[in-house]
Amino acid sequence: MDNGTAVSVSSAGTKRAAGPEAARLLRLATTASVATACILIVVKLIAFLLTDSVSVLSTLVDSLLDAAASIINLIAVRHALVPADREHRFGHGKAEPLAALGQAAFITGSAVFLIIEASQRFVSPRSLMNGDIGIAVMVFSILATMALVMLQRYVIRRTGSLAIKADSLHYVGDILVNAAVIVALVLTAQFGWRYIDPIFGLAIAAYILFNAWQISAGAMDMLMDRELPEDERARIREIALAHSSVKGLHDLRTRASGQQIFIQGHIEMDGALSLLKAHAIADEVEDELRQAFPGAEVILHQDPYGVEEERARFA
């Protein structure tokens, strides 16, 4: 197997990394995510102790779960990058969606906790203290999170990692949540609206639950071997049929497992071709598909054109 770095050009014109370069970027992103979450936990804990704000508490809990999720991602990504072995012939890529389901469970638990805490504040509202400290911490959190998200988006463009996409989704949400908390703190401090704080806490909990649902849905798609998006399947057909000797393509099957993509299909060629020539053409098409989808495992069966045979129903 080639251990060099392969790249492809995305629709945005960005070269996509594979192999060692992709592994390096994924490790960088996961490590940065854990470090950022740990820093935010410390500053938000201090802010909550000084302000007693449920909105600040909500962001603290969210950061705690972000740290847990990021650690899970770090472990899962490293495991998913382990090459295929005798016991795992298709690689270890499904460690990513399994980790994502674990993240969704953590996130759901945090949302339930916030709903309970915010509901208690409706019954027994409290005045906030040191609101200016809370605002300063939220501003710091936004800046730190924006820096992390910029790094993650670069890694996503270069690798297409679903695990990093899921992790980035948390932190994009955190930016919005922290901004909402600033609004809640300002309104409470300026106008004394004590119920604004728990209202924002409930809104944040609802947003967290929505994120958990999105992550779970994406993880289940991968675990259930859902087909690649239709635009990518169309691109596969276009590449295969662009070869002058390929007259048709059927029974196309695709799936993703972490970073690994699997492409299988039957290409149709002139039945008069020799087996050696047909094999060479199939190799050429497979190579072109691997260039378009770096790191993909491609298997193409050769069929004589025009021969009637039973075909897959949904190919």
Rank of each mutant, 00 (worst) to 15 (best):
V112F: 09
F113G: 04
T51W: 02
S63M: 07
E96K: 05
S63C: 10
V54D: 09
G91T: 08
S70W: 02
T108M: 14
L128C: 07
V42S: 11
V61M: 08
I135E: 09
L50P: 02
L40I: 01
D62H: 11
H88F: 12
A69H: 01
I41Y: 04
M129H: 15
A99G: 15
L40Y: 01
F106Y: 12
I75D: 02
L50R: 11
S124Y: 12
I46S: 10
S63K: 07
L49C: 14
L49G: 13
N73K: 05
I39N: 12
I107L: 13
A118D: 06
S70L: 08
D66F: 00
V54P: 03
V112A: 15
L98F: 13
L57E: 06
L60T: 06
L128Q: 04
L81D: 13
S53M: 01
A67T: 10
D52A: 13
F113N: 02
G134P: 03
M129Y: 12
L50V: 07
S55G: 15
E96M: 02
S70E: 07
A104G: 11
F122D: 09
A68W: 01
A69R: 00
A80R: 05
I115N: 06
A84P: 02
Q103L: 03
A80H: 06
T51Y: 02
L45D: 10
L98H: 01
K44A: 07
S53A: 11
V43Q: 12
A118R: 02
L101V: 09
A76W: 05
S124N: 15
S127C: 09
E117D: 12
E96G: 09
Q120C: 09
L45T: 14
I135P: 00
L49I: 09
I39P: 00
A67Y: 04
L45C: 11
I72C: 08
F90W: 11
I75M: 13
G91E: 10
L128G: 10
L81N: 12
H79D: 12
T59A: 04
L81F: 09
H92Q: 10
V54E: 14
G93P: 07
I39C: 07
K44S: 03
G131L: 04
I72W: 07
P83G: 08
I107V: 14
A118K: 07
F113W: 11
A84Y: 02
I46P: 03
H79T: 14
A47C: 05
L101Y: 03
V112Y: 07
V112H: 00
A76V: 03
L64E: 05
E87G: 05
A118V: 08
L60M: 11
D66T: 01
F90S: 11
V77Y: 07
A67H: 05
E87N: 14
A118G: 11
L98M: 15
R78D: 15
E96C: 06
P83K: 06
I115Q: 06
L98N: 04
R121I: 06
P97L: 04
A118I: 10
T108I: 13
F106L: 12
I115E: 09
G93W: 06
I39K: 14
L57K: 08
I107P: 02
S119E: 06
L128W: 07
S70I: 07
S119M: 11
A47P: 03
A67V: 01
I71D: 00
N130E: 08
A80P: 03
F113S: 13
R86T: 14
L49R: 12
A95I: 00
D52T: 13
S53D: 05
L98G: 00
D66N: 12
